[in-house]
Simulated scan of single mutants.
Amino acid sequence: MFVGILSNAVLGHPNCKDGLMTVSDVRKIIQEKSFLDKVTGYFDNIVVNGVVVDEKGEPLPGVVIKVKGTTRSTVSGNNGRFYISATDENPTLIFSYIGYKTIEITAVTTLTVNMILDPAKLDEVLVMGYGTTTRRLSTGSQSGITAKDIEKQPVTNLLQTIQARIPGVTIVQTNGLPGAGINVQIRGANSIGKTNRPLYIIDGVPYLSEQINLAASATGNTGLPSAEGQTSPLNTINPADIESIEVLKDADATAIYGSRAANGVVLITTKKGKAGKTKFGVNASSGASVVPRFVEMLGIDQYLALRRKGFANVTTNPAAPSTTTAPDLLLWDQTKNTNWLQELLGGTARTNDVSANVSGGDSRTNFYISGTYHKEGNVYPGDQSYQRGGVNVNINH
């Protein structure tokens, strides 16, 4: 049986020529895991069978269970039960649910998890169109992030900070160039022929929604030339100056702001000075990125051999290569070998960002002043970098 399996593996291996292989290649085949071995290894993982209960000992459905350090996750069922497998020797499970504290527990085969109430989360302040409320009292569908979440992300556009963080909100950059436009959809597309852009409100004031180059054109639809295609209006705002971002997704948005909010509302609150000692902060960062792996292409010798083989295989209407049909075989230099992927995509995209702020005041007057400079390049040849500089002054009396 082993000989039969080995012979089939040898004959089907790409290094097998005329039924012959070197000893080293055969050893590699023996060492490679078969599909059966991989399936068997999967069932060797630890499988956790558990139940999640609340503070009263009642089953708690909808709890998100995730294996720490991996993307493997599951959700507890209506009876609070869950099943999940892990590959680590001592895996850690993370349990999270709205209104409860996030818990980390070392996995065992049978597990009972008691969730702990966290009332502070339900009393978090939410910014609404006509004031503020708390998650406990909010009746609308509203999600958002705070400055703590924003400052961890080195992004150019503040909309990128909520990408994949708020359910029901889709954010896609129009192309890979720095400073490019961003398409935002809240709960899908609401119109086929018209735009689906939401309404932006910054500190209670409506802000530009369409792309800057489109808004600056005479017709409003052709657009002025722009290297990055369409420039998002929110590129002009420094993400470090943002206190919170809230997204209104349902009828609340239309009820407060009217038909302009038919596609949802993005409420942006900027940082303001607070009474107390004057504070000064500086944040500087620098980074670089490259294309980690290129597709393997033909070399000059392989390409020429392929071209000659193509002419040799023409049997219905054979024709010898000519300067018209095959200049690469007869006229062009057959010794030069240029890796065009490396030439066009082999650069280094460097990013530099510097921001500084000073804030303070007393019970009557407070201030917040900040400045920023951002420069971001790309991997393409030439200078196609995106630069942004700005100053923000906020004084309240």
Rank of each mutant, 00 (worst) to 15 (best):
R260G: 07
S24H: 05
G310N: 14
N190Y: 05
V67K: 09
P381Q: 08
G276S: 11
K375S: 13
V172P: 01
L20E: 15
G77F: 02
Y42C: 10
S73D: 10
N114E: 12
N213L: 09
L11E: 10
V52G: 03
S138I: 06
A312S: 15
Y386Q: 05
G188A: 03
G168D: 01
S73W: 06
K272Q: 15
A326R: 04
V314E: 12
P61R: 07
A189N: 13
Y97Q: 04
L329D: 11
G229H: 00
Q211D: 14
V169G: 08
K194R: 11
F82K: 02
L122R: 03
E228S: 07
D149I: 06
A164I: 00
T174R: 01
Y130I: 01
E89Q: 06
T231M: 10
Q387W: 01
I182V: 13
D301Q: 09
D54K: 01
I237D: 08
L248Q: 03
V113M: 10
N378A: 07
G258L: 10
D25T: 03
V172S: 08
D54W: 02
T132V: 02
R364S: 13
V169A: 10
A320S: 15
G179C: 04
L304I: 13
T92L: 12
L208F: 00
T351A: 09
T222C: 02
T348C: 04
C16Q: 08
D328A: 09
V26T: 06
T133C: 06
L304S: 04
E228P: 00
T231D: 06
G179D: 08
I201H: 09
Q384F: 04
T269A: 09
F95W: 11
L208I: 08
T269W: 01
V64G: 10
V247W: 00
F82S: 03
S73G: 00
N221W: 14
S286P: 02
K66Q: 14
T324C: 04
T110R: 13
S143P: 00
G131L: 01
G310T: 10
K121L: 05
I192N: 09
A253N: 07
L158W: 02
D250A: 13
S141Y: 03
L331D: 07
V47F: 15
A356V: 03
F43V: 07
K101P: 00
A275P: 04
G12W: 02
R364K: 15
N114V: 11
E55L: 00
T236K: 15
G129V: 01
K309Q: 15
E58D: 14
L304A: 03
G19Y: 09
S363Q: 14
S96K: 07
I268P: 07
L36F: 12
K56N: 14
G140M: 08
G77A: 15
L329G: 02
A319P: 01
L177K: 09
L224H: 05
N357L: 06
I256T: 15
E376L: 05
G80F: 02
H13E: 05
I237K: 10
S244Q: 11
P178N: 14
Y368F: 14
I162T: 00
T335L: 14
I201L: 05
I202G: 05
L267N: 09
G273L: 06
L298R: 13
S191R: 00
R72N: 11
L208R: 09
N337M: 05
G57H: 09
D54L: 00
F43N: 11
F311V: 06
G144S: 11
V169S: 08
V63Y: 06
